[in-house]
Amino acid sequence: MTAFTHRTLPQTVVLETGRASHHLGEALTTLGRHRVMLISSRRDEAAARQLTDGLDVAEHWTEVAQHVPVELAERARVATERAGADVIVCLGGGSTIGLAKAIALTSGLPIVALPTTYAGSEATPMWGLTQDRTKTTGVDDGVLPHTVIYDATYSAGLPLELTVSSALNALAHSVDSLWAPSTDPIAQALGLDGARALAAALPVLVDDPGNLAARSQCLYGAYLSAVSFTTAGSGLHHKICHVLGGTFSLPHAQTHAVVLPHVLALNAPAVPRQAERLATALGARSLDDPAAAACAALDELCRSTGAPRSLRELGMPESGLAEATERVLAVAPSSNPAPVTEERIARLLREAWAGPHPANPTGR
Rank of each mutant, 00 (worst) to 15 (best):
Arg49Asn: 12
Arg49Thr: 06
Arg49Phe: 00
Arg49Tyr: 03
Gln50Val: 04
Gln50Arg: 15
Gln50Asp: 13
Thr52Arg: 00
Thr52Lys: 09
Asp53Pro: 00
Gly54Asp: 08
Leu55His: 14
Leu55Val: 03
Leu55Asn: 02
Asp56His: 15
Asp56Glu: 14
Ala58Gly: 07
Ala58Asp: 08
Glu59Gly: 00
Glu59Thr: 04
His60Pro: 07
Trp61Thr: 02
Thr62Val: 12
Thr62Asp: 00
Thr62Ala: 01
Val64Tyr: 01
Val64Met: 04
Val64Ile: 10
Ala65Glu: 13
Ala65Lys: 08
Ala65Asn: 02
Ala65Thr: 04
His67Pro: 04
Val68Cys: 14
Val68Ser: 00
Pro69Gly: 05
Val70Glu: 15
Val70Arg: 15
Val70Met: 14
Glu71Met: 03
Glu71Tyr: 05
Leu72Arg: 13
Leu72Ser: 08
Leu72His: 10
Ala73Val: 14
Glu74Tyr: 07
Arg75Trp: 00
Arg77Thr: 09
Val78Asp: 12
Val78Pro: 07
Thr80Met: 11
Thr80Cys: 15
Glu81Asn: 09
Ala83Gln: 11
Ala83Phe: 06
Ala83Val: 03
Gly84Leu: 13
Ala85Gln: 07
Ala85Trp: 04
Asp86Ala: 05
Asp86Gly: 07
Val87Ile: 07
Val87Thr: 06
Val87Ala: 06
Val89Lys: 06
Val89Ile: 05
Cys90Glu: 01
